[in-house]
């Protein structure tokens, strides 16, 4: 077993984990943060995306042991109390989710994407999203939501 101390959504955890335990399983089953979903376990669908030290990663491709000392953000930490994150609110407004299984991963990837891009256009957003599979929505409302938030952010300095 390996000792892991990690901060997830601002809360500190100390856990002993098996060396091969995936980060996705650690979040879901060890910490009970089941908002992070697993759709393929081979790094393609993107539903397991979380943010580790300010970078979005696929938690099915990472080991829990690798986040020792790191800061992890998951979908559960996105809203500010009663207030949804602007992306969450835009997703609701635009009907950008149906089953909601892909949504947490797309939200976390989008948070990271918006943090590191400068007023992205629809095409860039679609390219970022091409690492995520959604079988329900046909993507357009997701692109629209992210674009709306990007525009909002562009306006408010």
């Amino acid at each position: 077993m390996i000792e892991v101390s990690v901060t997830v959504n601002g809360r500190a955890y100390e856990e002993a984990v098996a060396p091969r335990l995936l980060l996705s399983d650690f979040l879901r089953h060890t910490l009970g943060l089941t908002g992070t979903h697993v759709g393929c376990e081979h790094g393609v669908c993107g539903s397991c995306t979380v943010i580790v030290d300010d970078r979005s990663v696929r938690s099915c491709l990472m080991l829990a042991a690798q986040v020792d000392g790191a800061e992890v953000r998951t979908v559960e930490g996105l809203a500010d109390g009663d207030e949804l994150h602007p992306l969450q609110a835009a997703f609701r407004r635009n009907h950008a989710l149906q089953c909601g299984f892909c949504t947490p991963g797309i939200l976390m990837a989008s948070v990271d994407f918006l943090e590191r891009s400068d007023s992205p256009g629809r095409r860039q957003i679609a390219e970022m999203l091409s690492g995520h599979l959604c079988r329900c929505t046909g993507y357009e409302p997701i692109v629209e939501s992210i674009h709306a938030v990007a525009l909002q952010e562009g306006q408010s300095p």
């Binding site: 992070t36 697993v38 609701r92 939200l107």
Partner: peptide
């Protein structure tokens, strides 16, 4: 109307079979 399902799902509080 916006969906009553969404808030739960957006917060990662959905309850799927593996949850």
């Amino acid at each position: 109307l916006e969906r009553i399902e969404d808030e739960t799902l957006l917060r990662g509080r959905g309850r799927f079979i593996d949850d």
